[in-house]
Amino acid sequence: PRPDGQDRYTISEVAAFTGLTAHTLRWYERIGLMPHVDRSHTGQRRFSNRDLDWLSFVTKLRLTGMPVAHMVRYAELIREGDHTFEERQELLEATRRDVRTRIAELQETLAVLDYKID
Rank of each mutant, 00 (worst) to 15 (best):
residue 56 S to P: 00
residue 66 M to T: 06
residue 90 E to S: 01
residue 61 L to N: 09
residue 88 R to N: 02
residue 32 G to E: 11
residue 95 T to K: 03
residue 111 A to K: 13
residue 113 L to K: 11
residue 50 R to Y: 08
residue 28 Y to S: 10
residue 60 K to G: 08
residue 28 Y to Q: 12
residue 117 I to Q: 14
residue 105 E to S: 13
residue 83 H to R: 09
residue 84 T to V: 02
residue 39 R to F: 13
residue 113 L to C: 13
residue 99 V to L: 07
residue 94 A to F: 10
residue 37 V to F: 01
residue 13 E to C: 03
residue 36 H to D: 06
residue 14 V to D: 05
residue 106 L to G: 00
residue 2 R to V: 06
residue 69 A to N: 03
residue 40 S to Y: 13
residue 59 T to G: 02
residue 20 L to M: 10
residue 8 R to P: 00
residue 102 R to I: 03
residue 6 Q to H: 10
residue 5 G to E: 06
residue 101 T to P: 02
residue 17 F to M: 10
residue 71 M to P: 01
residue 114 D to N: 11
residue 60 K to W: 00
residue 91 L to N: 00
residue 49 N to R: 13
residue 7 D to P: 06
residue 85 F to G: 01
residue 49 N to V: 04
residue 100 R to M: 08
residue 100 R to I: 03
residue 50 R to S: 11
residue 68 V to M: 15
residue 113 L to P: 06
residue 88 R to T: 01
residue 77 L to R: 12
residue 57 F to I: 14
residue 67 P to K: 05
residue 93 E to A: 11
residue 110 L to Q: 14
residue 10 T to S: 15
residue 74 Y to Q: 00
residue 34 M to Q: 14
residue 99 V to T: 04
residue 97 R to D: 13
residue 90 E to A: 03
residue 24 T to A: 12
residue 59 T to L: 12
residue 72 V to P: 00
residue 17 F to S: 07
residue 7 D to H: 07
residue 25 L to I: 06
residue 33 L to T: 08
residue 112 V to N: 15
residue 116 K to S: 15
residue 80 E to K: 14
residue 93 E to T: 04
residue 108 E to W: 02
residue 12 S to N: 03
residue 36 H to G: 01
residue 73 R to G: 02
residue 37 V to T: 10
residue 82 D to R: 00
residue 30 R to G: 08
residue 9 Y to C: 12
residue 45 R to N: 05
residue 95 T to E: 14
residue 82 D to H: 00
residue 71 M to K: 06
residue 10 T to V: 09
residue 70 H to K: 11
residue 78 I to M: 06
residue 84 T to C: 05
residue 50 R to D: 15
residue 28 Y to H: 13
residue 26 R to A: 07
residue 55 L to A: 15
residue 59 T to D: 01
residue 40 S to C: 13
residue 104 A to M: 10
residue 92 L to C: 05
residue 67 P to A: 13
residue 95 T to Q: 15
residue 32 G to M: 10
residue 47 F to K: 04
residue 41 H to F: 03
residue 26 R to F: 12
residue 110 L to W: 12
residue 53 D to K: 09
residue 29 E to V: 05
residue 8 R to G: 08
residue 47 F to A: 08
residue 48 S to K: 07
residue 79 R to I: 07
residue 8 R to A: 12
residue 59 T to F: 01
residue 23 H to Q: 12
residue 63 L to W: 00
residue 83 H to D: 11
residue 34 M to D: 09
residue 59 T to E: 02
residue 95 T to Y: 09
residue 67 P to H: 09
residue 19 G to A: 01
residue 44 Q to T: 08
residue 75 A to P: 03
residue 46 R to Q: 14
residue 19 G to Q: 01
residue 46 R to P: 06
residue 85 F to E: 03
residue 56 S to G: 13
residue 31 I to V: 15
residue 17 F to Q: 08
residue 43 G to I: 05
residue 45 R to F: 00
residue 88 R to E: 00
residue 39 R to E: 08
residue 54 W to A: 12
residue 31 I to N: 07
residue 15 A to N: 07
residue 98 D to F: 12
residue 68 V to T: 09
residue 32 G to D: 11
residue 7 D to I: 07
residue 31 I to Q: 08
residue 22 A to L: 04
residue 87 E to D: 04
residue 3 P to Y: 05
residue 101 T to Y: 11
residue 115 Y to G: 09
residue 102 R to H: 05
residue 65 G to I: 14
residue 83 H to S: 14
residue 4 D to E: 14
